[in-house]
Amino acid sequence: MDPFVVLVLCLSCLLLLSIWRQSSGRGKLPPGPTPLPVIGNILQIDIKDVSKSLTNLSKIYGPVFTLYFGLERMVVLHGYEVVKEALIDLGEEFSGRGHFPLAERANRGFGIVFSNGKRWKEIRRFSLMTLRNFGMGKRSIEDRVQEEARCLVEELRKTKASPCDPTFILGCAPCNVICSIIFQKRFDYKDQQFLNLMEKLNENIRIVSTPWIQICNNFPTIIDYFPGTHNKLLKNLAFMESDILEKVKEHQESMDINNPRDFIDCFLIKMEKEKQNQQSEFTIENLVITAADLLGAGTETTSTTLRYALLLLLKHPEVTAKVQEEIERVIGRNRSPCMQDRGHMPYTDAVVHEVQRYIDLIPTSLPHAVTCDVKFRNYLIPKGTTILTSLTSVLHDNKEFPNPEMFDPRHFLDEGGNFKKSNYFMPFSAGKRICVGEGLARMELFLFLTFILQNFNLKSLIDPKDLDTTPVVNGFASVPPFYQLCFIPV
């Protein structure tokens, strides 16, 4: 058959498939802009700032609406009420993970971030239990974070109060905490193996944040037939998995079943207990991918939040002064901060919360999916439909947070200066898919920041009023603009 005829037939089939998918069930789905064949609503979305586009569309179609990214149908949730109703009140029905062709290629359905069903539930339950087990290797997770915080302070001392970009050092600290939990080992910041790991993690975040990856996920045929950065992403992930597998083999040879040292040991012990169960989800494949998931999810998000926190503290020296006064009063100079201190430091706690609220790190979270046909607000959402959640619409709700575009710790303080919780605080998402490392991340943010401010004054290279804190939105995360500062020993 003539190649031209084959091409026309293929394009015609794709067009018909697109029209059929977009028209099927439209009477039951939430409203939304009319999609174009094949490309859907992509032309109506700013790929570099999806969150802003969703906010604009919500003003037209309401808090629940339908979009098509290519052939992929998505239902968008915008605003606290619908997000709570879906992710919390109907948590089980909305607990699936959205379709990610690239991740599915890399992870093969294993791990904790992109798995679904029984596998996801069992691996998540085990990971939560293990991360909360403060007795691994007779050292609590808090001990590990405190140790890394001391190392971080010593690295900052080496800058000798000269101007520096904190990106690298602030990236090393949370990565080392995860390494300590998974591998029972922290690395020197100049260790070549550690630097290679950091390089792969950072490069992957840069790649994932590009519009090209959005295109690959919406048109998965590209993955096999086109060159691009997605190939580098898959190569980096394969490198990390190979490295983790080597460490798993080392653990198998040296493990003491009665004295687990780290996450890998705990997983291997669980595998041993379930070795007679042919349906067990505790396999080497799941261990390797879960460890890679924890490394990827637990490094860049925390380091970016820390980097943004220091920029905001530079911009608002009056806030920094209040935090340091609270540190001096509650902790002093002669001991290290600990998590028990947080309950006695409402202002510092409010500042950490406000940093996370203000920066809105992951504006749309990772997409969910419905696990069955769901009736939601008089609409029928078919099983498997991807759910896109606007966390921006919750964290920047102007009824809950007056002047949401302003950095103001009073958003989390009552009139008496006591810490005030808010149900709208969802930087880790909400419901059954809430970030498994939430507790660890909150511990790291509090301890790293208090250790830094206990030991250093922060000095800006320019007038604080002239510092730009506008986030650089890159399609996946909101990151701070480049800046330098000086760490002046107190």
Results as ranks from 00 to 15, higher is better:
residue 30 P to G: 00
residue 319 V to K: 05
residue 141 I to F: 12
residue 391 L to G: 03
residue 228 G to K: 05
residue 48 K to V: 07
residue 204 N to I: 09
residue 339 M to L: 15
residue 298 G to N: 03
residue 361 L to W: 01
residue 362 I to Q: 10
residue 228 G to E: 04
residue 189 Y to Q: 05
residue 163 P to D: 07
residue 409 P to Q: 02
residue 351 V to F: 12
residue 340 Q to D: 12
residue 455 N to E: 11
residue 415 E to A: 13
residue 3 P to A: 11
residue 475 G to I: 10
residue 360 D to I: 03
residue 29 L to Q: 08
residue 183 F to G: 08
residue 384 G to Q: 05
residue 151 C to Y: 13
residue 61 Y to D: 00
residue 370 V to A: 13
residue 478 S to Y: 11
residue 40 G to A: 01
residue 2 D to N: 09
residue 30 P to M: 04
residue 288 V to A: 13
residue 260 P to I: 06
residue 475 G to P: 09
residue 459 K to I: 08
residue 357 R to H: 00
residue 292 A to P: 00
residue 421 K to I: 12
residue 59 K to P: 02
residue 271 M to T: 07
residue 318 E to H: 10
residue 65 F to M: 11
residue 323 V to C: 13
residue 139 R to E: 08
residue 113 V to D: 03
residue 456 F to V: 02
residue 195 L to F: 08
residue 266 C to D: 12
residue 486 C to L: 07
residue 194 F to G: 05
residue 307 R to I: 10
residue 319 V to R: 02
residue 375 K to F: 08
residue 488 I to H: 12
residue 426 M to C: 04
residue 215 I to H: 05
residue 407 F to P: 00
residue 302 T to D: 01
residue 279 Q to E: 11
residue 316 H to R: 07
residue 442 R to M: 10
residue 203 E to G: 07
residue 443 M to Q: 10
residue 387 I to Y: 00
residue 131 L to C: 05
residue 246 E to M: 09
residue 462 I to L: 13
residue 262 D to S: 09
residue 398 N to M: 10
residue 181 I to L: 13
residue 476 F to G: 07
residue 377 R to W: 06
residue 30 P to I: 03
residue 62 G to D: 00
residue 436 V to S: 04
residue 11 L to M: 11
residue 421 K to P: 13
residue 168 F to K: 13
residue 205 I to D: 09
residue 355 V to W: 01
residue 7 L to C: 09
residue 115 S to H: 03
residue 263 F to D: 01
residue 10 C to H: 01
residue 486 C to V: 11
residue 244 I to W: 03
residue 190 K to L: 11
residue 185 K to R: 12
residue 267 F to R: 01
residue 107 N to H: 09
residue 393 S to E: 01
residue 89 D to A: 06
residue 270 K to N: 08
residue 165 D to C: 06
residue 83 V to M: 14
residue 399 K to Y: 11
residue 235 K to V: 07
residue 286 N to I: 02
residue 434 I to R: 08
residue 83 V to I: 14
